[in-house]
Simulated assay, not measured.
Amino acid sequence: MTASDLTPTGRSIVLEAAGVRAELGTVAAVLRGLTVDGVEVTESIPAGSAPPMAAGIVLAPWPNRVRDAVWTLDGERQQLDITEVSRANAIHGLLRNTDYEVREQAPGAVTLGALIPPQHGWPFLLDTWVRYELSPDGLAVTHGVVNRSARTAPYATGAHPYFRIGANPVDELELMVAASVYYEVDTRMNPVAAHSVEGTPYDLRTGAPLAELTLDTPFGGVAPGVAARLTAPDGATVELLHDAAWRYLQVFTARDFPRAAGRGLAVALEPMTAAPDALNSGDGLRWLAPGERWEGHWGIRYTAGRSGAGSR
């Protein structure tokens, strides 16, 4: 890599085939943008900018937050670095500022890998990777890990994409979330209870206008398949797809997301394999024996609307 290649998101990688284009960066294995037939389906991050509001980054070895940046392992207190200073939590894992290595690359796919070494509050060595692969109507994403420690290690992962449907204003979209549980959170955004969505404003299984929603909310009980869907006025959709490992989802409606045209509403749909504060609750947390390997998958699918824009 030369000096001219250096950017806040690391080395730029472009995957392009059959009308689908993904722009990536090696820092935090960030998804900088995804278009299908010229239609933007994620918020784009300029190569010269750091990801705003964690846009597009990979979250490992935990997504979301660890309360007080503290958890307990075999009766011993583990003190992580506080990375969400305003709320005194550890947020979004240990790789958000790590430059991944390119382990494998083809015209329509790339695998980026990074080690998570032992550090404050984390006495483990994990080898992690994420593979981005173009699909006919979007993107397939595979997260993987091998425990290289001599002891069993906890693990969870997630991602932080913000979605849109082309030039449609985000506040004109409808959001569906296929979740049966939502998590009540405190003022520091840590979970205090899990509730059924039935009969609550958090029941988004039949959809609701984004303009009416203010969310920074974790959801659970997400079945494999379509975890969430955005729908434009002309019927175009962008769907977040989960496999069986991804039973959790964070929905964040950011009212001041920065764009070239000015700040405005954006929506993050964050696939997660575990609930917030899983290092303390164990909710969705996976424990990997020494040498054990795991992979899980999520994806993005775009379908054109009645206008036919982006139709194949």
Rank of each mutant, 00 (worst) to 15 (best):
V14A: 04
A18Q: 15
A18V: 00
A18G: 08
G19S: 04
G19Q: 06
R21T: 14
R21M: 08
R21S: 09
T26R: 04
V27N: 01
A28D: 06
R32P: 10
G33L: 02
L34V: 05
E40K: 12
E40W: 12
S44F: 15
A50V: 09
P51C: 00
I57C: 11
R65Y: 11
R65C: 06
V66R: 09
D68F: 10
A69Q: 10
T72Y: 14
D74G: 00
A88M: 13
R96E: 09
E101D: 15
V102F: 07
R103P: 00
P107Q: 09
A109V: 02
P117K: 06
Q119E: 14
L134N: 06
L134G: 03
A140P: 03
G144I: 05
G144T: 08
G144C: 07
V146R: 15
R148T: 04
R151C: 11
P154T: 03
T157S: 12
G158Y: 10
H160G: 08
P161E: 07
I165Q: 07
E172Y: 08
L175N: 04
M176Q: 14
T187E: 15
M189W: 15
A194I: 04
V197T: 13
E198H: 14
G199I: 03
T200Y: 11
T206N: 12
G207L: 04
A211S: 15
A211Q: 13
E212Y: 03
T214C: 09
F219A: 05
V222P: 11
P224I: 00
A227G: 14
A232Y: 10
D234E: 09
G235T: 03
R247V: 00
V251E: 06
V251G: 02
T253K: 10
T253S: 10
F257H: 14
P258F: 06
P258M: 02
R259I: 08
G262C: 09
A268R: 01
L285R: 01
G291D: 12
G296S: 15
T303V: 11
G305C: 01
S307N: 13
A309M: 12
